[in-house]
Design a protein around this nucleic acid. Structure first.
Lengths: 402, 402
DNA sequence: CTTCTTTCATTGACAGCGGAAAATAAGGAG
DNA sequence: CTCCTTATTTTCCGCTGTCAATGAAAGAAG
């Protein structure tokens, strides 16, 4: 058997090198001195770690025309060459797949959606492979290799093993998705929970850069929450974490599919809003968009529903803030399309329910095009790539001995 | 000026050495091989780190009579010599100080309580110094030096700086307690929030040993919560974290001193129970003990109050479990004296409100004599001692340059 | 137009940590 | 006794990151 082509691996043997690269990747172009400061290392260490990364083409040097110091030798900026490697991210939903091709800086180059006929693992894997193939062709057109594939799935996902433990939405149990996808695509694959993937993207490339503790709250079909504590994404002992959607807001509230009453999700998810809108107005509202337009049109009782939803979300966020003291909360998700309808209520409820200085937490919103979910998946692939190997599954990996 | 006596410092220069020592300290006597396994290091590294620790007297070697392997050379156990150094922990409450003298293994050797006449910093510092002096005399009697003092205060405490930012209960603001106490006692001082201190004690010496994520919930005068995530105690960005007491359980519930309605604390704290008990029974209940005896005596409506309290606590714990997925929740606090009155309700409410496999979280109770709060303070001192310097304040430290 | 001063970056020497492998220790089984 | 097995120690070695000294590249001072 011919030995596989020597896949050049990422030249960051040491953890410090990976840390330096990550700093440059997420904190934009920086001078070496600045990198040293932020990474808590000596200038010499940075010089030594940067050289091989420049030689391998992952970093490039820029001259900084502006912002040169008033005195002394001008600094040279170091930044990541996004075009050095590409990544594919795929988000699996119940009825479609979203795929993106990104560069190393996680900028989306191409996005593709394809519908799904069924949601069992096989019915998903085929189209997913096809989707990846299409994106690989795009990458070929750019003449850059694709260095990893990230897949995001809702539910309990074991990233280290690459296994979807249980996804209620897809009705999957113990599906070794990473292995399967590595087999069909030939790429190194990382699989993670969708909200956590989005959180990784925020942590490295979004509003969470440089923070050691923050939360991402997604509002839409469901209400999700990704948490970063001590600089790491929280995964939870039993596959559960960030279930802000099932924080009880009102024990006398509407029944939730989880069996309880008054969960945030039972009040503020798209479904919940549609249901309440039907009951309040008598109109056969079809989806969240229509529900929002009823409210915008001033239909009686419609705005109150959004007020309640905003209140529930604000209380949920306050609960997170009270328990964890994050530096920032990033509200995101498709539901933000109707943000004007409940923004004030979120803020008011948060301010009221936040305890003491937890109210100082910076709560902000960030529009989330649906492609972002797939971008999150790509971000996990980039993360695995930089950490060289961790949590990645590759084709033909030897099975562990019995 | 005579140079100070060379205070022998803890011989764990490297982080690995400190990690090895901590492993032995909290996981009891272990063979070197076992330490290597748990610390993820080579056997050689353990041997090398252990030797100076044995020479300095912090570790001792034991022969293990039982449990020797069926085959091969028998292993030698390594354990911490608790008697090598002593520590003092002081818990500051509004009306008294509790002080304990512990050994290096955080076993309480002596406990002392003294009442406080007033609660302003000066009125506390005097008696605290006196209390420490008494415990130092006890230590002298044992012929072992006291290597550190830990102080635990409720509220927003900045451990790194040793400053009590804001303690509503004591009405303190920006009190540099560590510096003050270091001045009057001559000991290295660590100051931390009381619940976090208790959590450190559980993490190193209690039911949290070996876990990377768990929560400590204290039930009593207040409802508190200490969180460990990714193996570290959560401190929160603005000094707030673990405020499970102000998680809203029932928006229509009784008003809480924080301004909201239906906080866990407004339903399940000692005060809340006493208040509800008076309203329900008409009896002028004086304290939690009397309230509990009413319930035990079967006074009409008394048990229902505990049922509601248990329900609130269970929901609060479920919220923590849903958000963070801890491996374990340790319920503790003076309120546990009446645990039989609400245990079932806590479990029922937790099981109902926990989402999915979060219900698998191991919820257990642990009786907490009041001295434990002071022991927690001692645990923080031990932690600072082992990490040599971090978060400790010593007398005569040079002020930072302007 | 030199010479300073200042800040950025690089280099080379070096200490120390932790790993790998070989050596040693300490029992029990033949 | 000798061999086998497991624990621990020793020795050697590569590697990482720091320190201190040196080079570079401006603008400022004279």
């Amino acid at each position: 058997m011919a030995s596989p082509p020597a896949v050049e691996s990422f030249p960051a043997n040491t953890s410090a090198a990976a840390q330096i690269f990550t700093t440059v990747l997420s904190q934009g172009p920086l001078t070496r001195m600045e990198v040293a400061r932020r990474a808590g290392l000596s200038a010499a260490a940075v010089t030594k770690a940067v050289r091989p990364l420049i030689e391998a083409g992952y970093l490039v040097e820029d001259v900084d025309e502006d912002a040169r110091p008033a005195l002394g030798r001008p600094a040279n900026l170091v930044r990541v060459d996004g075009g050095r490697a590409l990544f594919i991210g795929v988000k699996v939903t119940g009825d479609k797949l979203i795929g993106v091709l990104t560069d190393l800086c996680c900028r989306i180059l191409v996005a593709r959606h394809i519908p799904l006929a069924a949601r069992d693992p096989k019915a998903v894997l085929g189209p997913a492979t096809e989707l990846v193939r299409e994106l690989l062709i795009e990458a070929d057109g750019l003449g850059v290799r694709v260095a990893g594939l990230g897949m995001a799935v809702s539910g309990d996902v074991d990233r280290a093993e690459g296994v979807v433990r249980y996804s209620p939405f897809l009705e999957w149990r113990d599906v070794p998705l990473a292995e399967l996808a590595a087999m069909t695509t030939g790429l190194p694959v990382t699989v993670d929970n969708d909200v956590r993937a989005l959180t990784v993207a925020e942590q490295w490339f979004g509003a969470g850069v440089g923070l050691s503790g923050f939360a991402v709250v997604t509002v839409g079909a469901g209400i999700g929450c990704g948490l970063v504590v001590h600089g790491r994404v929280v995964a939870g002992a039993h596959g559960v974490a960030g279930e802000i959607g099932h924080v009880t807001v009102d024990p006398a509230g509407p029944r939730c599919h989880c069996g309880n009453r008054g969960c945030v999700e039972a009040i503020a998810s798209d479904d919940a809003i549609v249901r309440q809108m039907r009951a309040a107005t008598g109109v056969q509202v079809a989806d969240a968009v229509q529900a929002a337009s009823l409210a915008h049109d001033g239909v009686a009782g419609a705005r109150e529903i959004y007020a309640r939803a905003g209140d529930a979300i604000g209380r949920g966020i306050a609960t997170v803030a009270n328990l964890l003291g994050p530096e920032r909360v990033i509200i995101s998700g498709e539901g933000l399309a109707a943000y004007d309808l409940f923004a004030d209520h979120i803020r008011t409820a948060f301010a009221a329910a936040a305890f003491g200085s937890a109210a100082q937490c910076d709560v902000r919103t960030r529009p989330l095009p649906f492609d972002e979910w797939a971008r999150g998946a790509a971000a996990t692939a980039i993360q695995s790539f930089i950490r060289s190997d961790a949590n990645q599954h590759t084709r033909g990996r030897a099975p562990s001995p019995p």
